[in-house]
Structure formats: structure tokens, C-alpha cells
Design a protein around this nucleic acid. Structure first.
Lengths: 306, 306
DNA sequence: GTCAATTACGTTCTCCGTAAGGATG
DNA sequence: CATCCTTACGGAGAACGTAATTGAC
């Protein structure tokens, strides 16, 4: 009632060699054991598959029919196992990561490139998402894991902190604040402020703090960091971005000044579903990202006054 | 290293129910045994297929990949076994018989019709062959078995005699011989004779005997029995056919007279290869033909003088 | 605390290998 | 008579079930 891979292999070996002794040898078994094996197979399928005397071994008509099925079964088995092992060896597979636009601009692609050089067979996908939808993306399985400023519900997600990423004030190069080595939130009092997306992590992080500082909201709420830089450059206000976003704000007329104080940085977590394990490929990328943190700490910060 | 049908079934049961206890029950096993079974499967394929706590069972990404392969494997296994058992039950299959034109004219189709009513799923094929090629057809596997006047080499073929089929003289109704109740070969002395195919069994059977009887050879050698009847009807000569061929010679102007004497009949054997067993379907038809001999003995012989 | 999966362990059964038997050419 | 498949039989290992344990909610 139940075929096994070994029975199929035995059948195919005998079908090819037409000799019990040879086929047994090929299957690394004694001849009697092999004989019993064929008998078991015939018993299980319910029909005689070989005509055999001590001199000749031939397929029965039913055996010839079964041979086709046996080859398909063996092929499917091999394919299934090979596929799995290719994935285990990271020779094939697919990983999808969700991360914030700032990291998706440079560091994540850089890390993905390293990963791709090491495991060229693995298909990669990067979804740039705002903080709000990151966890949803992971929850729905559209990404294997995500990078996010919030670790998510600890019952649902498992998170490890990658690093605390310093925040920077972005202002015009001729702004008085641009000459400071550091700024505090209190320095921003009364200033016009351009928000990044309300659903983004920086906004979520700073919003309660800025409310205390009597910040003047310009009403602008941009999606692309390039747009933000343009607005700041043309005098509509100032803004705050994480260090990894500085590169996207690179303009001659702009300056960046590190924030200091209690909330001068925002965390970045690696977040994955707690109750679903990562694929081997995803686990590999996860580990690589953890190792890649130093490159992130050394992120380019060339926007500087003077 | 070796998947078995039971492991695949276990995997699919768990994949569907997502509960060890339910899946174990469905596989008619205890829960611990089932648990070990899944562990064995995971050990054999080399990767974890399920994420499980005592509360939740989920497929790993690799498990989801494997599920597709597992379904294909299970499907191929089921198909292979079902096909075999359909054939064993004679619900499907194919039989090819080779027989002489005389029997192929009526009796064989009649028997095939009986077989087809009983086993409508089995595909039937009837090859009408002259004696010469009958055994070749069987040897090459183009027919599962044959009907032939010669039993063939007993090392190569296994033959059972169906019956001895009486031979009849075919002549014009106004022939002096037509009024006889029986004729002997000696009565044919000096008569012009029309041969059926030299490769046919009747010719092979009679040729040495006719040579002793100073038979006059017309030079005609026909393929179709209808042609033979036409030649006889128009006075070119006489001929001899087996009883089963009489129906094909049915004409008002013709008469048939049974031969008597030592060689007044030719045998018909069922012949099959000795070293290859018959398919279940073929064995069924073989048995049915053996049972159908009485109908062959009662073959229509309406060609009669007066 | 309860429920579900797992581990522990004794038992049964499958399955292999060695040795003897039987059939074929 | 030589060769090759099969049967017989004993032992090793696999796999199952019962009972105890661990872990999650």
C-alpha cells in the first residue's frame, strides 16, 4: 500500500540491468534481500512486475506500464529533495526584505550586493516601505523580515536592534544653526519644520518631542527625501533625517548638523515573525546584515558646514 | 535519503490539519509515533519543514516548497498504483490478437465483442495475419498472442490447441463433386486448383499432400477469400478452405463439401511467448477464447449442395 | 492549569545478510 | 554442472505504542 523510494530505485535498477545480482549490487544489498524487496514491491502494487526464471528477467506488460510511473516518481522525489538541498546550501531561493527608504538608498543595496556575490543563485527583493507598513509587509509574508524603527509586538515579532542611528538637522548652509557642531531640539524653537511622511519612523519618533518645542509646522509632508532637500534648500524650513538619509540630501546649499540629547537617534531593528522561521536564504541575509552594521556606522556624512 | 509514501502522506496530513494529533489520527497512528515520523522526514530531507510549538504548527518556507513536491509525488504514486490496479481489474488495458483471416472474419470479432461487453475499458486490437507472420507478430510484441495452425518452437512459444478445424472443398454448385456428402483428396486428381496464399496455413498444410495427387496448379494465388470464391464461381478451378472461411465464400453458384480422411482438418493453436507473461487483459481474452470454442465448432456452414 | 507536542522506553515487526535449496540452460 | 534466483532462518535496527515530560497560552 505504500511505495518507498528504495523500492522504486530497486525496481528501476532491475528494470535496467535485468539481473537480480547486478541490480542488488548497484543498490548495495545482498541478492536475497534484493529479491525479497522486489517481491515486496510486487506484493504492494498487487501485480507481478517481472517474469523471471533463474536465467532470464523480463518485465511483464504491467511492469512496463509501471516503469513509466516509477521513473516519474523517482524523478519527482529527486527533484523535491534536490530543490530543498539547493535551498539549504543557498544555491537557490528567494529573500525579500522590507526596509525604510533611507537604508534602501545605499546600505541595504550594498549589503544585498555582498550577499548576491556570495550566493548568486538566490533571488533578492527589496521593498522600501515606510515604518507604518513595514510590520504589515512582514506579517503578510510579503517580506521575510524587515528593518524598522519599532520592534513590533514582542508576541508576534522577534526583533534585534541593529544600531541607533544618529539624527541630523538639515538646514540651509547659510542658516545660523549650520555653523554649530551640534544642535539640541530646543534650538529649533519657533522654526518652520518640514515633515517627512507621518507614517515614517522619524516623524513618529520626533512628533511628541517637537510638540513640546513650539515648532511651526509648514504643512509640507513629503515622500521622497530629495523633495525634502529641495524644500529646505529653497528656504521653506528645516527638517531632521537619519544619517543614512544624508546622502540623499547632498546639495551645496545644504548643511547637516548632528542632534544631541536624549532623543538624538532613532533605533533600527531587524524584525521577523516570531512563529515562522526564516528560510535558509533569509537567515543568511539576516546574519549578513548584522555583520554589516559597521559599514552602516561609517555611513557617509559629507554634508558639513565648512 | 529515501522518501516513502507513508512519510509523504504524513507530511501532507500535517500540512493540511496543522495538528499533530489530528494528522496522527488520520494516519492511524499514535501521536508520538507520528511526531517521530515527521522528525524522520525532516532528517531525511535535511531541513526543518514545520515550525511547531505545543500550540501552533506552521510550515517553514522550505516546508511550503516541499509541499508542492510532496503533492506531486503522492499524485504520481497514486496514479501509478491505480493504473496498475485498474489493469489488474481489467478496467483498463489493451490486448492485441493476431489471427488468420478466416477466424478474423467472424468468430474472433464475435468473441472480442463478448470480451468488450464484459470489459468495456479495455482497448482491443485484432491483426489479421497469414500464418507465416503470425508468430513473428507475437514475437515482436505487436500481438499479445496469436491464433495459428502451427504451434511454433516450443522453446519460444507456449501453445494450446483450440480445435481441429474441418477443411472444405469449394467448387461450383454444378460440379460433380458438389453432390457428394464428403470428398477425399484423391477425388481431386487432375483438377485445376486455386491456391490461397502460400504463406497461409491451409496451403502449408495441404501442399505436400496435394503434390501426391497430381493436382493441376492454376497459378492463381489469392489473398482475399472473396477473390478465391469469385475465381471458383467463374470456373477457374476448385479450392479448399477451413470451415470458418465458408461464410466468406457464400454464393449461390458455389458449394462446399467437407473433406474426409487423415488430413481433413487443420489445427488452430493459441500461441503465446513462453518467457513473457500475458497482461491481465490478454490473459482474460485468452481464457475467453478457450471457452468460445463451442461457438467455433458450430460455425455456419450454410454453403451446401441442395 | 490545561492542552498539545515531545521524550523515554519497552516491545513488535520489518528488513537485511548468511547459508541452503531449486530451477534453468 | 554451473549459474542465478529463491527460500529459510537468525539477528540488528527501525518504528510503534504507553507513559512521563516539557512547553505554550
Amino acid at each position: 500500500m505504500s511505495l518507498s523510494g528504495r523500492l522504486i530505485d530497486a525496481f528501476l535498477a532491475l528494470e535496467e540491468t535485468r539481473r537480480f545480482s547486478l541490480a542488488a549490487q548497484r543498490c548495495h544489498m545482498s541478492s536475497p534481500a534484493f529479491s525479497q524487496m522486489v517481491a515486496r514491491l510486487e506484493d504492494q502494487v498487487g501485480v507481478r512486475l517481472f517474469d523471471r526464471t533463474t536465467r532470464h528477467v523480463t518485465l511483464t506488460p504491467e511492469g512496463e506500464v509501471f516503469a513509466q510511473g516509477a521513473r516519474r516518481i523517482a524523478s519527482e522525489m529527486r527533484a523535491a529533495i534536490d530543490d530543498l538541498q539547493d535551498r539549504a546550501q543557498r544555491r537557490t531561493g528567494r529573500v525579500s526584505v522590507a526596509g525604510p527608504p533611507s537604508l534602501a538608498a545605499d546600505w541595504l543595496p550594498q549589503q544585498l550586493a555582498v550577499f548576491h556575490r556570495r550566493y548568486p543563485g538566490i533571488e533578492l527583493r527589496l521593498r522600501d516601505v515606510v515604518s507604518d507598513v513595514c510590520l504589515d509587509t512582514v506579517r503578510r509574508g510579503e517580506a521575510d523580515f524587515g528593518l524598522n524603527a519599532l520592534p513590533g509586538n514582542s508576541l508576534e515579532f522577534e526583533a534585534v536592534k541593529l544600531l541607533d542611528e544618529p539624527l541630523y538637522l538639515i538646514c540651509r548652509a547659510d542658516d545660523p544653526l549650520a555653523s554649530r557642531r551640534k544642535v539640541r531640539l530646543s534650538h529649533l524653537r519657533q522654526r518652520a519644520f518640514i515633515h517627512t511622511l507621518r507614517s515614517g519612523s522619524v516623524w513618529q519618533h520626533l512628533q511628541p518631542l517637537l510638540r513640546d518645542q513650539d515648532i511651526q509646522d509648514t504643512g509640507f509632508e513629503v515622500d521622497q527625501l530629495g523633495t525634502l532637500a529641495g524644500l529646505v534648500a529653497h528656504g521653506f524650513g528645516i527638517s531632521i533625517v537619519p544619517r543614512s538619509a544624508l546622502q540623499l540630501c547632498q546639495r551645496d546649499s545644504l548643511a547637516a548638523v548632528p542632534l544631541e540629547g536624549a532623543q538624538a537617534s532613532r533605533p533600527i531593528y531587524l524584525v521577523r515573525p516570531r512563529h515562522r522561521s526564516l528560510s535558509t536564504a533569509a537567515a543568511g541575509l539576516w546574519a549578513l546584515l548584522l555583520q554589516g552594521v559597521p559599514q552602516l556606522r561609517r555611513a557617509p556624512t559629507s554634508i558639513r558646514p565648512q
